[in-house]
Design a protein around this nucleic acid. Structure first.
Lengths: 347, 347
DNA sequence: TTGTAGGCGTTATCAC
DNA sequence: GTGATAACGCCTACAA
């Protein structure tokens, strides 16, 4: 910059004003500086600027795994909203590992991100609260944490799941199963921190829906511990092979659904004749398979966008109470649910 | 930091050495400093450090759209390799817009990223060369740029496509169509910069395969301008409705395939009885639809990982000639290709 | 090993 | 509007 100033015949202060767009500079001086900068191939060092201003114009984004269509879309939403406001996005994956989440937050804080968007995994969320308290706002994406005062953007997983079960009950099903994507590892944590809220809420919704229909022992048809399509395939196969197999299945996300569809096919059953299926998330393929899959569609990209917007509000100083914002899900009826044909259904 | 030093009863220099892990500090001094830092909730400012050292330990990643499974996996690969080496990832989307790519690169350069991984879109790549020349190494991901000396990690799209066509020819098909994901917008650019290399190479491979089989006017069955599943659905519908419709279809990526499958179904045709299908990219759903889809599988995550590794080598000073690294594709035979049953096939 | 002093590339302050 | 000068938070001599 000193060189640019010299070439333009002004002081570094004036050059800085022209280049940084602050203070006031005469038009002639500005054009001279800009010309000199261009000629010398000058590039501003935003890092140095950030050290002074205390703002990096960067937000940190921490998710479990981008390579999951839901998060990919959410990341896209965050990214778009951030860019529109002149912010960049520093990305980190946790793979649902609390240690990695914590260290990711540490690193991002050390990089002086202006705010953090986190899809929190299980375990103690103390690092998130501390970040917020120490002046870096935090917005939770897709998952809430009980007893923690942080802005949260998500959908009503409980209600959506309850309704999905009700829908299956209305079709006459009584033996309704659920396969979820949670992992067993998280079970070491204290009760409130086990697994992630989406998983818990969806299971609760499932159980409530079952209870409202007076179904007996719904837990009998509940399978957790299915982190990958492979595992959920096995869980589904297990259900199908059991005594009094379910006539309907609720998959907690699209990857679980993928495994479930494979398992059902391999078991020689067909959807929806032998078993009906409802899944969370409107993955692209659910409209293409035979039959097409009835799903609960989440506005993944909009969730990311809203999270970014809320964060930017906090960054610009908004001080209201933390709030939980629920975006609507859409129940998309397709062809994977049929009336229950099993006459032992009273069982 | 000054406060930490004071509390620990040492100079800022010693505190800096203890906190930054450089120089030499006596064990006692270190523990005292660390204790003071913890007590005061001190967090190092990596930005200030970067200003001094000239290294930000950050790499910039520029892709067309994370919300595309291929790039999502590639981003994942880059992210993993970067993290393992102590680097963070600054992410940007371009939506195949050359202006956005250029401005993304500008911003990342101003943020002093140590290197850049770019899946370049169409148009003039001068900004990438300039970045490289001015000392920020650049690695191209998934797409090459002719006449530009930059490290590149990709697959052999031409050869994979040629073989796919050969495979269809072997099954007896003569009327083989291709639908690609390119957009028309890019056609305003000079010849070498039109569209992206993956699209061009796949088309070239298709044409070569057709030529080798002595097929007449393969261009007749070539449809570009299909950026979204919707558009490729329309393009496919158009092909099917034509005079002498194709008996086999080659989809240039999994999203095109998605549209194609829908179009084929809506036209009342079945795969592979009426029309065979081969697609690029082993998207998760291709193994679940009926019939399962024969695909050319790309190691998306490994491509990202390799790109990051190559970039890190450059960052640490590797000076060899830029090289183009080709990762192998895998042709996965599934159930979407059948022998050609059409006896007008000599047409 | 430790402290002092200077510098990295900006922005902020304050006279002029 | 402009220029000198301090300041940001850290690292790197160099001397002690």
């Amino acid at each position: 910059m000193a060189e640019v100033a010299r070439t333009a015949g002004v002081s570094t202060a004036t050059a800085g004003r022209a280049l940084g767009g602050y203070g006031s500079v005469s038009p002639e001086a500005r054009t001279r500086v800009l010309a000199a900068a261009k000629e010398l191939g000058y590039r501003r060092n935003d890092l140095a600027r950030a050290v002074i201003t205390g703002r990096s114009d960067t937000i940190g984004l921490v998710v479990a795994d981008i390579d999951n269509p839901f998060f990919a879309a959410a990341v896209r939403g965050v990214s778009d909203a951030a860019r529109a406001a002149g912010y960049e996005v520093l990305l980190a994956n946790t793979d649902e590992d609390p240690h990695r989440e914590r260290s990711a937050v540490d690193v991002l804080l050390a990089r002086r991100v202006d705010g953090l968007i986190v899809a929190p995994t299980w375990g103690d969320p103390e690092h998130l609260q501390r970040a917020q308290r120490s002046g870096t706002p935090v917005v939770l994406l897709d998952r809430r944490i009980e007893g923690v005062d942080l802005d949260t953007v998500m959908v009503d997983n409980f209600e959506a799941s309850r309704r999905a079960v009700a829908y299956l009950v209305d079709a006459g099903h009584r033996r309704i199963a659920m396969v979820t994507g949670g992992t067993r590892r998280s079970q070491v944590a204290p009760p409130g921190q086990r697994g992630v809220s989406t998983g818990r809420d969806r299971v609760e919704g499932f159980l409530r829906g079952a209870a409202e229909a007076g179904l007996q022992e719904p837990e009998r048809y509940l399978r957790t511990a299915a982190g990958t399509p492979d595992l959920s395939q096995r869980a589904t196969a297990d259900l199908l092979a059991g005594h009094e197999p379910p006539t309907a299945l609720f998959a907690s996300d699209s990857r679980v659904a993928l495994g479930a569809v494979k398992a059902i096919r391999q078991a020689g059953r067909t959807i929806p004749d032998h078993i009906s299926l409802v899944a969370f998330d409107d993955a692209d393929w659910t409209g293409v398979v035979t039959p097409t899959i009835t799903v609960i569609s989440q506005p993944a990209q909009a969730l990311g966008r809203r999270a970014a917007e809320m964060l930017l509000e906090r960054i610009s100083g908004a001080q209201e109470e933390p709030r939980e914002e629920l975006l609507p899900t859409v129940f998309i009826e397709r062809d994977s649910v049929a009336p229950c044909a099993d006459d032992t259904r009273g069982a």
